[in-house]
Design a protein around this nucleic acid. Structure first.
Lengths: 176, 176
DNA sequence: AGACTAGTGGAACAGACGTTCAAGTTGTTT
DNA sequence: AAACAACTTGAACGTCTGTTCCACTAGTCT
C-alpha cells in the first residue's frame, strides 16, 4: 500500500508543531506556551495546533515527553568517566541550557501531574540501566548528585566549567 | 512617635497577601498566580493586590524570597545526622510537599531571572555555612545530592520513607 | 478645622487566551 | 465521477488577564 500523502504531510506538520513548542518552552518556559504562541512560532494558523493537539495539556505532554527522550538518548552517548560526565553537565548548563531548563520544567509539571512522571523519570531509569548492576545505594546517591549538580548549575551566575565539576562528579561516581 | 495605624493595617494586609500567594503557589503552582486569584484567596479586592505589589513579578519575587527564607530557617533546626536529614527530606516530599514544590518553582524562575538567584541559592549557602569548614568538593557533592534527592522525591509515585533515604543520605554526607 | 497621606475598592480598558464551528481544499478510494 | 477522509483556515464565543482610573474613607499632622 502506498503511503497516504495527506497523512505524511500531517505527520510533518505535527513534528513541526512539536519542535516549535519546544523552542517556545526553551525561550519562555512552559508559561509561554499557548496554542497561539506555538502557532506563531511554527508559522501555522492557530487552528492547526488545536487540530493536532486538541488541548494544551496534550501539546505539552507530547512535547516534554519527546524532549526527555531526546535528552536521555544524548546521554547514552556519554562514556561513564568523570571527565565526560562533567563535560555533559557543563554543556547542559551552557550550550544546551534551554533544553535543560525544559527538562526541569517537565520535572515540576510531573510533580503535579502523574501522567507525566514516567517521562520525567526516563533519564533516571536510563542512567540506572547504563550504569549496570551496582550497589543500589551508591547508584541512587550518584544519580541524585548529578541531578542536583545540574539544577544548581542552572541557577549559578555563570555556567560551571567542566574542569571544576570533574572532581565533584568523580567523588559522586566513586561511591558506586 | 506613635505607630501609624494606617501603616500597621497596611503591613498586616501585605503579609496576608503574601501568605495567600504562597497558598496559591502551593496549590496551583506559579502558573496559578494572578492578581485576581491571589485576591480571591486572600479575600480582598483585586485592586488591593496591585496596590501593594504593583506588578505580578513583584508579588512573585516577594513571595518566593520569603518562602525560601522560611524553608532555609526550618532546615537550620535539623541536626546534621543522616537520620535527621533523611527525615527532613521525607517530610519535604510528603507533609510539606506543597512548600517544597514552591521552592523548586523558585529555582526554575531563578534560572530565567537573575534577580531571583540569591533567594534561590539561599538554602545552599545556608547549608554550606551550617556544615562548617569541610572539603569543598565533598560539600558540593553532598549539597547536590540532597538537592537531587529532594527533586526526585517529588516525582516519585509515593513519597520516599525516611528509612529508605537514610543510607543514601549517609553515603552522601560521608564524603565530607 | 483644614491639609495631607495611606489605604480602599468598584468599574472599566484593551488584550490574550482555549476552544469551537463551519466552510473550504486536497488527496485517496471505489 | 462520486464518495469519503485528512487536513486547512478565518471567524467567532466567552472568559480571564494585568493594569489603570477615580471617587472614597480613615487615620495623622499643623
Amino acid at each position: 500500500m502506498p503511503p497516504d500523502g495527506r497523512r505524511a504531510r500531517g505527520d510533518r506538520r505535527r513534528r513541526e508543531i512539536l519542535a516549535a513548542t519546544l523552542r517556545v518552552v526553551e525561550r519562555d518556559g512552559v508559561a509561554g506556551v499557548s496554542h497561539r504562541s506555538v502557532a506563531r512560532e511554527a508559522g501555522v494558523p492557530t487552528t492547526s495546533t488545536t487540530y493536532y493537539y486538541a488541548t494544551l495539556d496534550e501539546l505539552l505532554i507530547a512535547t516534554l515527553t519527546w524532549s526527555a527522550d531526546e535528552m536521555a538518548a544524548s546521554f547514552r552517548e556519554v562514556p561513564l568517566t568523570p571527565a565526560a560526565v562533567a563535560r555533559f553537565i557543563a554543556d547542559a548548563a551552557g550550550e544546551h541550557r534551554g533544553r535543560t531548563l525544559a527538562e526541569y520544567e517537565l520535572y515540576l509539571l510531573a510533580a503535579r501531574r502523574p501522567e507525566l512522571r514516567p517521562a520525567a523519570r526516563r533519564w533516571i531509569s536510563l542512567m540506572a540501566e547504563v550504569a549496570g548492576p551496582r550497589d543500589p545505594v551508591a547508584l541512587r546517591a550518584a544519580l541524585a548528585g548529578l541531578d542536583g549538580l545540574l539544577i544548581q548549575a542552572l541557577i549559578a551566575d555563570f555556567p560551571p566549567m567542566a574542569e571544576d565539576l570533574e572532581p565533584v562528579v568523580s567523588l559522586l561516581m566513586l561511591g558506586g
